[in-house]
Design a binder for these strands. Structure first.
Length: 271
DNA sequence: CAGCGCCCCTGCCCGC
DNA sequence: TGCGGGCAGGGGCGCT
């Protein structure tokens, strides 16, 4: 579920209720996530004020007086604000309670998410240090991508999904961006032409921006119900459409597994 | 370093 | 209707 737009939507959703608020308590019901949640999260955070809330890639970064929390939603995680801390449901693993009475609740069925604490500067953090540029920042340019692509002979789809190349492009958006840019997902990164990379940059940015604008839909639908994405079903042109006609030329879309991820593309429109 | 395969975990869908 | 297999939107890690 949580691609970059959903993480951004989560950030915007929780910030008004938590920023500047003092933590009164933390409850860890199941700390066995991707890495163990600090057992003393309650004593680490209680009494501290949330000073800043940021996103880097798909990480949410919470700055407190004495350090930072890194929060990752993994594949199936969601963070919500509750007016009051109602009885927890299944997979409600972590709560952070604030002085205004609000409860920040983490639900994560697959437990691929993470809640980590570091007293240090985030610049040096091993999980963040080697991340590539933000796709919607000025540093994500064609020249940057061209320089990076030269060093990589692997297929361009797993390449563009690598967070060291650019953050926030998950499997769905990699499929969509390559389709929109007319690039074959199996084409080696170092064989991509400048015009192709120009289109790729533009399409990644355009698709992510659009998804952020509508980001709330996916999150609400996911949290509220059956896990089926809201706007995705309407607007996806490649992902999940294997065997269905290409929206450009009508030829059935090819579907293959590439680096253990489902990959959908048009053999006519993507070269 | 680059590139690949594996793994963490639950839920759901499909075919038998 | 029950069960086994495969798959799911992430991403770090260890091996070659």
């Amino acid at each position: 579920m949580p691609e970059l737009p959903e993480v951004e939507t989560t950030l915007r959703g929780i910030a008004p209720h938590t920023l500047g608020q003092r933590v009164t308590a933390c409850v860890v019901r199941n700390g066995r996530l991707r890495w163990p949640v600090p057992e003393d999260l309650h004593s680490l955070l209680s009494g501290q004020t949330l000073l800043e809330l940021k996103r880097r890639g798909k990480y949410l970064l919470l700055r407190f007086e004495s350090g930072h929390v890194l929060w990752h939603l993994g594949m199936s995680g969601s963070l919500r604000i509750l007016e009051v801390a109602a009885a927890p449901g299944k997979h409600d693993h972590v709560d952070v309670l604030f002085a205004n009475g609000r409860c920040l609740r983490f639900n994560d069925p697959r437990r691929f998410g993470a809640v980590l604490w570091t007293p240090d500067s985030l610049d040096e953090h091993p999980l963040l240090k080697h991340l590539g540029p933000e796709p919607l920042s000025p540093s994500f340019t064609v020249d940057y991508l061209l320089g990076n692509a030269k060093r990589h002979s692997l297929s361009c789809k797993p390449w563009v999904m690598d967070a060291k190349v650019v953050v926030g492009v998950g499997n769905i958006y990699a499929n969509e961006a390559l389709f929109a840019a007319g690039i074959h997902p199996l084409k080696p990164a170092n064989k991509l032409t400048r015009p192709q990379l120009t289109r790729l940059v533009l399409q990644i940015q355009s698709i992510l921006r659009h998804a952020i604008e509508r980001g709330g839909t996916t999150l609400r639908d996911f949290v509220g119900g059956d896990g089926k994405p809201g706007y995705f079903a309407q607007e996806l042109k490649a992902y999940g459409r294997g065997g269905k006609p290409c929206v450009n030329c009508g030829k059935p879309l090819m579907e293959k597994r590439l680096a253990q991820r489902s990959t959908v593309y048009c053999t006519l429109c993507q070269r």
